[in-house]
């Protein structure tokens, strides 16, 4: 595993005196998809938040491109997209306005073209100027997913990306994952449902630890 870009070694985390996972080690190389499975309360979201850099409640070592994440977290954040439970959208603003803000945060200038392209890709062209509160839950989820296509990244961290998405949409998202994978991207995701076998995802079951 010399080509591993993300390395996690001996992660340990507990919550309210309950050990969520201990001695958890894995790594991720370009073009790999890793699904984190496990029952409710197994610590899937906690693990993703730790990996994304939102939570410091763990012990162990995280490395990105061979360097400890403590020292180059800005670079790691630039190269990563994290989509959590929340939509991260302001309901009174339109998808275009919301995504302009997201792009500005990530330092993407002249973003409008990318945003229109991304919204088109997630099937929301024509909704660019509607306020988000007029969109359905699934559509809002898609606006959030559109962030993945607004700026490039090496790693996607997705927490339950299929929530509120219909069956056709699930297949669509899986095709995006496959596309990203062939382009050399890495994906780390949690999901209750099994992924399509064609994606060739590795699975870590937290319930088994």
């Amino acid at each position: 595993m010399s080509s591993a870009i993300l390395q996690c070694e001996q992660l340990y985390s507990e919550r309210d005196d309950r050990v969520l996972f201990a001695d958890l080690s894995f790594s991720l190389a370009a073009g790999e998809i890793l699904q984190i499975a496990g029952p409710n309360g197994a610590g899937k979201t906690s693990l993703l938040r730790i990996l994304a850099g939102l939570s410091s409640r763990f012990e162990g070592e995280l490395r990105w491109r061979g360097q400890s994440m403590l020292h180059n977290c800005a670079q790691f954040h630039r190269e990563t997209h994290y989509l959590g439970h929340g939509a991260g959208l302001k309901a009174v603003l339109s998808p275009l306005e919301n995504l302009r803000w997201s792009c500005a945060l990530r330092g993407v200038s002249q973003a409008d073209e990318a945003i229109f392209g991304a919204l088109d890709k997630v099937g929301l062209s024509g909704y660019e100027y509607h306020p988000c509160l007029a969109l359905s839950a699934g559509q809002q989820r898609r606006v959030n997913l559109a962030r993945l296509f607004c700026s490039s990244a090496a790693l996607w961290i997705l927490d339950e990306p299929f929530t509120a998405i219909d069956q056709k949409g699930v297949a669509e998202i899986e095709s995006w994952l496959a596309e990203f994978k062939t382009a050399g991207g890495m994906v780390l995701l949690t999901s209750h449902q099994p992924l399509s076998p064609s994606l060739g995802a590795n699975v870590i079951d937290l319930g088994a630890h």
């Binding site: 850099g53 790691f76 994290y82 959590g84 929340g86 302001k90 803000w101």
Partner: peptide
């Protein structure tokens, strides 16, 4: 609405 997470993770 979790936009704060985006702020913290924007790099």
């Amino acid at each position: 609405d979790a936009s704060l997470e985006q702020v913290l993770l924007s790099g």
